[in-house]
Design a protein around this nucleic acid. Structure first.
Lengths: 206, 206
DNA sequence: ATATTTTTTAATCATTTGATTAAATCACTT
DNA sequence: AAGTGATTTAATCAAATGATTAAAAAATAT
């Protein structure tokens, strides 16, 4: 049978190892032998359980994208919170996520650019933003504010830029800013308070 | 002889092709045969002129980093311009650069994260920011503003986030925002005006 | 306990890929 | 035109890599 305790254990070991290595090196630079070694398992088991490197990668990519977009979807479609509360919650959730798993943003953006037709591109994430409660509340904020309206994607690009760029640029930022890991993480935690204030300032600036 | 018209021409053809392919696919996913094909040249010529894939990559990486950091260094150390003028000039230069070569940010951040010890990491870019005229002027702005001072790296992360993230996240942003290439470029041009205003707002927000 | 099925392993395969080589071609000098 | 050195080409090599196989080991069923 295919659901014994040991089964699941081996399968999970492979997935965990694959996640670590794929996130760190990306698809192309990852060798199946790296994953087997990371998992402490025989190389042939990868093919036994997942058929091919591509299939294994697709599973990891799917789960990673789900984790990434899922956090957003949950917050963006909550009817009970205000626009400002959603911004705060988004910022806080993503910073926590990226402190734990710093490679996720670069991994996703990279694989998506290198292979836009791949699994990640096929996922239906079109409606996640534009049909969300958050998008509706954004329009309300725009109407209330008056002046030249700002395209929601200009806003989202800025929010995400403030939020995820530090993690994508981390190696460079650490060099030019002379930061160690501890200092970097401290600054990221500071940004939980800073970014929402800045977002407010950006929206008021018109 | 090593400087004939044909010499330089072949060498340049290889470098141009290598730049295109490395920028698009990254080091690991690039096959030397891809570069040879892109250049329309025999595969052996890559090794004849550049010894190895690694050496060719190092040259492209060096030139790319120079182009990327050079634009910044030039603006950041101009004694004749104000802080605000430097922000405007930086935003404008980088947006123009990335509209022409959209893969540069992801390429650099990626290779830097995957191989921090590599050539790019060895470059002396430590002083580019912290010892610049721009950094001094930033401190003046902070003193003038009063309130809780903001670490210059928090500021730089935000400036770069607003500036370069849209290009790194382009494939995802195009999907979730339902944007075509033309619309995307239009929005990037709009950001030349928007980002400096937002930076002003961020600094005033304290 | 024995038989059967599932899982794991070591060995091996076939292809890809970076690099080299020896011969052919080209450019330039005398 | 012949000679010389530089450049280009086709063929090939060796190592790396994703995948498979047959046998061994382990788990489960009878």
């Amino acid at each position: 049978m295919s659901d014994s305790e040991k089964d699941r254990s081996t399968e999970e070991k492979i997935k965990d190892a694959a996640r670590v290595v794929f996130h760190k090196k990306g698809f192309a630079a990852t060798r199946t032998r790296d994953i087997a070694e990371e998992a402490g398992l025989n190389l042939a088991l990868l093919n036994y359980y997942f058929r091919s490197k591509e299939k294994l990668f697709d599973i990891i990519m799917l789960e990673t994208m789900m984790g990434f977009m899922g956090a957003m979807m949950f917050v963006f479609n909550d009817e009970g919170s205000s626009f400002e509360e959603k911004v705060e919650k988004t910022v806080s959730s993503y910073i926590d996520l990226f402190i734990k798993e710093p490679q996720i943003p670069l991994f996703i953006m990279n694989e998506l650019q290198r292979n836009p037709e791949g699994l990640a591109g096929k996922l239906n994430i079109k409606s996640v933003l534009l049909n969300s409660v958050f998008a509706r509340q954004y329009q309300e904020v725009m109407n209330r504010r008056g002046g030249e309206p700002l395209h929601i994607m200009q806003f989202v690009m800025s929010l995400m830029g403030l939020l995820v760029f530090p993690f994508m640029g981390r190696p460079m930022l650490k060099i030019i800013g002379d930061l160690n890991d501890e200092k970097f993480v401290t600054m990221m935690k500071e940004r939980k308070k800073l970014v929402p204030v800045w977002i407010e300032a950006i929206l008021s600036a018109g």
